[in-house]
Every structure is written in C-alpha cells, then in structure tokens.
C-alpha cells in the first residue's frame, strides 16, 4: 500500500467537502451536475484513490512512510 489504512480513510473523508463544493464551483463555468452525476464523479474518484492506494509502490509491495503512523 502506498498509504496507511488510516491515512486512506482520512483522504476519502476529505473527498466529502471536495464533492459538495464541486457542484457550486462547476456551476460558475456553466457546468451543472445533478446529484446523481455528482455521486458518479464521487464514486469514480473513490475508485481512483483506492486503486492508487493499493497499488504496490515501485512494484515491491512494501509499505511506505505513511505506515509510520500505524506504529503509534
């Protein structure tokens, strides 16, 4: 994993404010998303983050410095 599980949880949580504000921001450039479309964008982002997080770094499958936190 490229990031600790706890770090991944926090990154996913930070998606919440990003997504709820995204609709407003996009409306400034005349892109109006429905709730369903926003949810789909959210789901895609979650999948992208999960794939990134679970891909082994440098192909060796070792954990990174992010997992230092799990020692605490």
């Amino acid at each position: 994993m490229r990031i600790s599980k706890a770090g991944l949880l926090v990154v996913l949580a930070l998606l919440a404010p990003l997504l709820v504000e995204l609709r407003t921001v996009l409306s400034w450039v005349n892109v109006e998303l429905t709730v369903l479309e926003t949810a789909v964008v959210g789901a895609v982002l979650v999948v992208v983050i999960l794939v990134w997080a679970f891909l082994p770094e440098n192909g060796d499958g070792k954990t990174t410095e992010g997992d230092v936190s799990s020692e605490n």
Binding site: K5, A6, L9, T64
Partner: peptide, 26 residues
C-alpha cells in the same frame, strides 16, 4: 521527527491512526 520529508510529504508521516490526533486535526 517521525521521518516525514518534503514540502507536503511530511503530512503522510502524521499519526492518522490515532483518533486523538485525527479528530483534532479535522
């Protein structure tokens, strides 16, 4: 102190597993 490096890379070295830290940070 925990080994974090870089302009923003140090963020990953924070103890996100600890609810005391994560709760206060959020």
């Amino acid at each position: 102190q925990r080994g974090g490096e870089g302009y923003f890379g140090w963020l990953t070295a924070l103890p996100w597993r600890d609810p005391v830290f994560t709760g206060m940070a959020l």
